[in-house]
Amino acid sequence: MLNPIDLHYEWFGVLWLEEENHFPIIVGYWFSKERSEITQDAILSGFSTWTEIGDHSMIMRMYQSIRNKQKKQDWEKRTRLSLRTIFNSPWNEVSPGLYLIKSRDTYPLHVSAILKKKFWVWLEHTAVCETKEELQAFMQRVHEEHQMEISMKNTKPKFL
């Protein structure tokens, strides 16, 4: 599965509780380069017993549930960046407006919608895009919500 933080496809493990007539409750999840590390991570998190399930469709549902919550949070969480940001490159060199910044040119990638105002810089939205179509959908959603002209910058987000 795609680890949305470091953008690598890795082993994914999820631990959940099941109760009758209720949707499973996810209590922990981990990504790792090796399958055995998932078990170690679960033990280090304080879990000692579980029943291992290899049902791909069940694990995919859990993964999708987690990713959907993360996507919602990425879209809704606005953050005003440090006051110093406005004095640093590239924000001291660009006009106020809405900018989309990609973390890299290859997929998967992170993309951020940054709103520069006269005295402030806001991180409006972020997303993990695995395909060009997902990036285009993010751009369209940003445009619909903000009704502003968008400028694309291909740069590493070292200033965020």
Rank of each mutant, 00 (worst) to 15 (best):
S95P: 13
L83P: 15
H56K: 13
K118C: 06
R78N: 14
P108H: 05
G28Q: 03
S65W: 12
M148F: 09
E18C: 07
T39A: 12
S82K: 11
Q136F: 10
M60W: 08
Y63S: 01
K117P: 06
N3G: 00
L7Q: 00
F47I: 05
M148P: 08
C129Y: 03
T51A: 14
F31L: 03
T126D: 07
Y99D: 04
E145F: 11
L44K: 15
V121W: 04
I5E: 02
S45L: 04
I66C: 01
E149C: 12
W122Y: 11
V121R: 03
L160M: 10
D6I: 03
R141P: 09
I5M: 00
D74K: 06
E124W: 12
D74G: 07
S151D: 12
S151E: 15
E37K: 14
F47P: 06
V94T: 10
F87A: 11
S151R: 12
K117M: 10
W11N: 04
P24R: 03
E76H: 09
F12S: 03
P90G: 03
N21W: 07
N68L: 10
G54N: 09
V27W: 02
E76V: 11
I114Y: 03
E52D: 12
L2C: 02
E145P: 08
P108K: 01
A127D: 01
H110K: 05
L2I: 01
E76Q: 10
I59T: 06
A127W: 02
P96W: 10
E52Q: 15
R80E: 14
A113R: 02
I101H: 00
I86Y: 04
E20W: 09
G28K: 07
V128T: 05
S95K: 14
M62W: 01
E37P: 07
L83M: 15
K71W: 06
A137P: 11
S65F: 13
I53C: 08
I150N: 05
I114Q: 05
N68K: 10
H56M: 14
I59A: 07
H125M: 08
F23S: 14
S112K: 11
H110F: 02
W75F: 07
I86N: 05
Q70H: 01
V94H: 09
K69H: 15
D74V: 02
K77F: 11
V94F: 05
K69Q: 15
K153G: 14
Q40I: 12
K77N: 12
M62D: 05
N3K: 04
L15W: 02
M148W: 06
N3Y: 02
K116Y: 04
V128P: 05
H8I: 08
T126R: 06
V111I: 02
I101G: 06
W122V: 12
H110G: 01
G97V: 05
K118G: 08
E20K: 15
W16F: 09
K69M: 15
I38S: 04
T155D: 12
E18W: 06
D41I: 11
Y99T: 00
R35P: 09
N88F: 15
L7H: 03
M1N: 03
I114L: 04
R67D: 00
T126V: 08
P24Y: 01
S48P: 10
M1H: 02
G13E: 01
Q147D: 06
Y9D: 05
P90C: 07
F87C: 09
K116A: 00
E52K: 13
A137V: 06
A137N: 13
H110A: 00
K156P: 10
H125I: 04
